[in-house]
């Protein structure tokens, strides 16, 4: 099962490779990984989306906790939380399809952030179901390039 693990770490060089090395060294897969400083510049948050049965997820959380630079590990999946991902899609367009694309983008409350004769660049923010749905729709027009941030998550309340 897919889990979103949120990990507060010391904002030091080498921490990312320690975490990434833990996953590769023990044969766990990372689906997405997003790292940036928090309100405290000395602390960064890593949001890791990974897969595994309960035993593997338990090991991942324990192993992360064991790293000296890791401050706190939370399995967001087990708690009430909100997830978001930002995706940029460069989609092919012609004079004939441009209006259709823009209409779909509006329905999704996404935005057009760059326009070219042959492409439109769409920015969409949302949970994975929403962004996946828009990506699927855009596919029929021809996706030239796709950039995703990976998911971030925050606990409710």
């Amino acid at each position: 099962m897919e889990h979103v693990i949120s990990c507060l770490v010391e904002n030091k060089s080498g921490v990312l490779s320690r975490v990434a090395g833990l996953f590769s060294g023990r044969g766990y897969n990372i689906d997405t990984l997003c790292v940036a400083p928090t309100q405290d510049a000395n602390v960064s948050r890593m949001t890791i989306v990974c897969r595994g049965d309960d035993r593997i997820i338990e090991q991942i959380i324990k192993q992360l906790n064991k790293l000296i630079d890791v401050i706190k590990v939370t399995d967001m999946t087990a708690e009430e939380h909100v997830e978001r991902e930002l995706v940029l899609i460069k989609v092919a367009c012609t004079a004939a399809t441009r209006a259709d694309i823009i209409q779909l983008v509006n329905v999704f409350r996404a935005r057009i952030i760059d326009v070219d004769l042959k492409t439109l660049t769409v920015e969409v923010v949302g949970d994975s179901r929403k962004v996946e749905a828009l990506i699927e729709l855009m596919r029929s027009f021809g996706i030239r390039e796709l950039v995703r941030t990976g998911r971030v998550a925050i606990l409710r309340g």
Binding site: S13, G14, S17, R18, G21, G25, I68
Partner: peptide
């Protein structure tokens, strides 16, 4: 050295 030793140490420092 800190890169090479990372998987075989409890912790390391540069």
């Amino acid at each position: 050295t800190s890169g090479i030793s990372r998987p075989v140490t409890k912790h390391n420092y540069l």
